[in-house]
Design a protein around this nucleic acid. Structure first.
Length: 224
DNA sequence: GACCAGGCACATC
DNA sequence: GATGTGCATGGT
């Protein structure tokens, strides 16, 4: 693996965290109150701005739908209507239903049972649910179920590539493996580090970056 | 009006 | 295995 010379002067990955944390403060993530709300939010936020997800979650809360029982009973068309503001609403309604069906089949509909299962078993199971890919699975595992997996998202990829930690188009697994290898296995660190990355992405490193003031501004970075 | 946002599945080569 | 496409709303 060859990286440009600029990468040589980069601090190790784990040193990025304190830089971000000093800037944004401890984030105390995920934005959601219950296990189920976090799981639903993880599905609804796929390729979607969080502000839109909030509207959809608000609709679900208003209808008291954030329970396994109510989500099991509601017709998928009705669910789609309620999550409409989050975009891809037909697909996302199905995905939520798919998760509930998985929970019913494998864990007798019990979130507590799900939470008790070991990570090594849970991750492959979640990835087999249609509509749950690596990021959604890992968000559920880390933020809803307190399992120590590092979540990789578009911001993670964009920021690390821009600062020469990876060549363009790194794979999900490649990025995740590197974080998990170079960091202590620590739930709170995984939780807050990813939250810091999202804060950085939202504020400074969207597809059209605004680097001025970014806590990583002084690191070597690719142009454009 | 164009572009973008905390993906994923599926078709095709 | 790599690449392309559909899915869709709401903010800038």
């Amino acid at each position: 693996m060859t990286l440009p010379k600029a990468a040589a002067s980069n601090p190790p990955l784990r040193r990025i965290y304190p830089l971000l944390c000093a800037h944004f403060g401890h984030r105390n993530w995920w934005p959601g109150d219950t296990t189920l709300e976090i799981i639903v939010g993880a599905i609804l936020t796929q390729n979607t701005a969080w502000s839109n997800v909030e509207k959809a979650i608000g609709n679900l809360k208003k209808q008291r739908l954030l329970s396994v029982k109510r989500l099991r009973e509601i017709p998928v068309e009705e669910l789609a209507r309620l999550v409409r503001p989050s975009g891809y609403f037909n697909q996302k309604a199905k995905k939520i239903k798919n998760f509930i069906a998985f929970l019913d089949t494998r864990y007798a509909g019990s979130l507590a049972g799900l939470r008790r299962a070991p990570l090594e078993r849970l991750r492959p199971e979640l990835l087999r649910v249609n509509g749950i890919g690596p990021e959604t699975a890992d968000s559920i595992l880390l933020y809803a179920l307190d399992k120590p997996v590092f979540v990789v998202d578009a911001y993670t990829r964009r920021i690390l590539v821009r600062h020469y930690y990876f060549e363009p188009d790194p794979s999900y697994d490649e990025i995740q493996e590197r974080f998990e290898k170079e960091l202590e296995t620590d739930l709170d660190l995984y939780n807050d580090f990813h939250a810091q990355i999202v804060a950085t992405g939202n504020r400074y490193c969207r597809s059209r970056p605004r680097c001025a003031g970014c806590p990583l501004e002084h690191l070597p970075h690719r142009e454009e």
